[in-house]
Computed example of a mutant assay.
Amino acid sequence: MRTNVKLFGILGVFFLVVATVYGFWVNWSEWAGIPAIYAVGGLGLMIAAFLWLTDRKFGVGPDDDEDGEIAQYSGTYGSFAPWSWWPLGLGIASAALVLGLALGWWIFFVGVGLGVYFLVGWVFEYSKGDHAH
């Protein structure tokens, strides 16, 4: 994990420097690429921070052990719903959002409504029904 922290930290700083150099190169007149490159740098630093905090919390993992075996990675990686339809609906809502930006605002607002509905359903999926905790 420490190697990943260093890798994403270096990539994040690299893209922040590249965005700044690019901004001076185009006289800060290009407003699509500059924020996008800054966003890539910020995302790299965000991943590095998450991995660093995870490393501090859990300590040395199997990927940091030079003599580690693949079997050390076994175990539970998360809890997933066995048959959840909420992500499919959220994907359709996202498609409606993008389609609404291209064709008409009324489609966009339908997508927002569907997105809120499916997102709330996905978040509270384990609160009722067969998989309630």
Rank of each mutant, 00 (worst) to 15 (best):
E69P: 02
I37D: 03
L119Q: 00
D55T: 11
G12W: 00
F14S: 06
V116K: 10
G78E: 08
L101R: 08
F124S: 15
G9S: 15
L114I: 01
G42K: 05
F15P: 00
V21I: 15
I92Q: 00
V98M: 12
F50D: 14
A132I: 05
E125P: 04
F8W: 14
D130K: 10
F8C: 15
A93Q: 01
D65V: 04
I37H: 05
G111V: 02
F8I: 12
K6C: 03
V98R: 05
S94E: 08
L90N: 13
Y126L: 07
S127D: 13
V21G: 07
A19D: 02
T54F: 09
G12C: 06
A93M: 07
M1S: 06
Q72I: 05
S84K: 14
I47G: 07
V13S: 07
H131Y: 15
L101S: 08
P87D: 06
S74D: 14
S94K: 09
E66V: 04
V123L: 15
R2K: 12
P82Q: 06
V123F: 15
L97P: 11
L119R: 02
G104E: 08
W106G: 08
D130S: 11
F15L: 10
S84L: 12
G91L: 09
S29L: 06
H133D: 05
A102Y: 09
A95R: 10
A71D: 10
G12T: 01
V18Y: 11
G91V: 08
I107H: 08
L90V: 00
S74T: 08
G23A: 05
Y117D: 10
L114M: 15
E125C: 04
V5M: 05
G12L: 06
A39N: 03
A32Q: 09
H133T: 06
V112M: 04
A71L: 14
F108A: 07
P82I: 12
Y22A: 13
G33R: 05
